[in-house]
Design a protein around this nucleic acid. Structure first.
Lengths: 337, 337
DNA sequence: CACCTTAGTGAAACCGATTGCAACCAATTA
DNA sequence: TAATTGGTTGCAATCGGTTTCACTAAGGTG
């Protein structure tokens, strides 16, 4: 059996409560006692049991992270590790651990959250990506459980979130292509059940409108957030239309789009220009190097964690949001026409 | 306050212990009582407190993962997310959570482990990458705490590990270059304080020996596991020697090596051939596409988690290890000479 | 001198579950 | 009829801490 607080108490000839106070560095304990207790902890190698401590104090010092979709997909898109990196840096600085739960589908995702929240395993949660149909956010809000979300929720009332200005970012990307002389611009994104896809579609439409370019629905397609998804979406478009440029809201999808273009006998960028989103490491090395919108993925993670910790430290922190800036990274996948 | 087991007990007119047994699906409880208890749980939305349960049962159903070095670096090398992906898939299937702790340096790494182990936060740990100087492994072994390690430890007595045959893999890579007519082959790896670097160096030497090629220590360099590390290592070699080919034990480093070669006025692969390790997604899209050793990173994660769970289910599972096969992926970064 | 602070510590309740053991009841056996 | 047995369930201890409250002794105040 392990050394417990009682063993230490006996050794130091004090009560367990005193030892507890020493650990908490309670100012009401005298220097002498503190030293005595510390000594009594040393030799047997005492270390407080975090579980017991959590049970009594109702603090876990861990923050929960729900990976959307199945873990298989989540980790293979560099977006998620990158955002996790941001979260984990902040967590680590503040001595918080990260509890990760992966889920295969929306139902499992909900179970994972319930498990963390009702099971009292974490102090707060950061949610990745919000769906339009998300039941989690209303549920968490009702439970009054601390959480932040990356990606502005559809109904953002009373929730803390961190996101880019997705409408603006997409408008920026589209305008960039328009300024390069393109008029037949396609738009490929993930499923419209994600708010982010919706917003970026709006930005795209906005840019077209500003430049009196008609919106053509055959130039728009959605598919999975994967290389294959990009490939399939592009193929569907090419069967009907011949865009000279395309906005793709995910770099990984872009690779599929490039592949589809090539399979179709098109050269990138000579025949079709391309602008991506996320600026994942791969995009700089792609062929051609991808012009893309850098959404500061790392920063998204950092801010979401910082925001969550702020909430944890000040329970009635009011709903708040943070917009992380984007930046257009010019490389070689777009040409003037 | 939340609904507890006592509330449910009152509602169902039974003792808390009975409720507990119902949750555990104890066969000694009659069907009628079970139903009554289930009903009493439903309405108030009872959910067992995992912390309290852990305290009493000494099981957490979470496995710990220690990210080596600082989280900043760890997540930016796709190796780690990929191995995590493997672990998390297995964990998820077995209804285990993942507790992640990131550390800045070796000292913090140790603290993180102690915190998990002595704090009883996890049932077992999977360790990523073993250093030659690792104190963690002996410590965990002495504590008799269940763990597995990815990467064969120097002293593997009594520990369960998962790894590739690194000597063989490196020999394979080197022989591939030799068969392509290369004789001046450089070898670039991460620090030799990692066992994996050591093993791969041995494999390289072995291949040279088999082919009666003298070992030249100016053709060997170590540096950080990063793009810059690769760049610097290659530059150091180029200042002294002119290899026609190089084995690089990490794809990310390879990119730096390519950059260094280009900066030095060399073309890849025309002037210098290159073979990498890991087969990260990026390597297929690199310019030139990278010939590399696929070490089945995902599988490494899967096996390490499976092994750990096996240990957890059968406490005195004997020390064991699993070798995950490697595969040479031929692309365009090597030419015959 | 009686009264009030204040500092320092201990006793005991509590956090929300699990589990060994005793107890009970009805049915069976001797 | 008494004892045994098997199936159910409750009591109470336990897991390892935190925290409220009470208490003691020393020092300060009017």
């Amino acid at each position: 059996m392990n050394v417990t607080i009682k063993d230490v108490a006996q050794r130091a000839h004090v009560a367990p409560s005193t030892v507890s106070r020493v650990i908490a560095d309670n100012p009401r304990i005298s220097k002498e006692t503190k030293e005595r207790v510390f000594k009594a902890m040393e030799e047997p190698g005492y270390y407080p049991n975090a579980i017991a401590r959590s049970l009594a104090s109702k603090m876990t010092y861990t923050i929960g992270l729900i990976m959307p979709r199945s873990a298989e997909d989540a980790f293979s898109n560099p977006f998620f590790p990158e955002v996790m990196r941001g979260i984990s840096v902040v967590a680590h600085n503040e001595k918080y651990d990260l509890l990760i739960s992966t889920s295969g589908n929306e139902e499992e995702e909900k179970q994972a959250v319930i498990n963390m929240v009702k099971g009292r395993k974490v102090d707060g949660i950061v949610l990745l990506c919000s769906r339009t149909t998300d039941e989690l956010i209303p549920w968490l809000r009702e439970e009054k459980f601390p959480f932040t979300v990356i990606g502005k929720p559809l109904d953002s009332k009373g929730v803390c979130w961190v996101d880019n200005d997705n409408i603006g970012a997409s408008r920026l990307a589209t305008n960039y292509l328009i300024k390069h002389g393109h008029k037949e611009i396609a738009f490929i994104s993930g499923s419209l059940e994600f708010v982010v896809s919706l917003d970026r579609l709006d930005g795209y439409k906005l840019a077209l409108e500003e430049n009196n370019i008609p919106f053509v629905k055959e130039l728009v397609a959605q598919d999975e957030f994967s290389e294959d998804g990009g490939y399939n979406a592009m193929m569907r478009i090419l069967k009907q239309k011949k865009p000279t440029a395309v906005v793709v809201t995910d770099d990984i999808m872009s690779f599929g789009v490039i592949r589809a273009a090539i399979d179709y006998g098109l050269r990138v960028p000579q025949d079709v220009s391309l602008i991506g989103f996320n600026n994942i490491p791969l995009s700089a090395y792609a062929n051609p190097p991808l012009t893309t919108i850098d959404i500061s993925t790392f920063e998204l993670g950092v801010k979401s964690a910082e925001l969550l910790l702020k909430i944890l430290k000040n329970k009635d922190y009011m709903a708040d949001h943070i917009i992380v800036p984007v930046k257009l990274i010019e490389r070689k996948s777009c040409i003037k026409r």
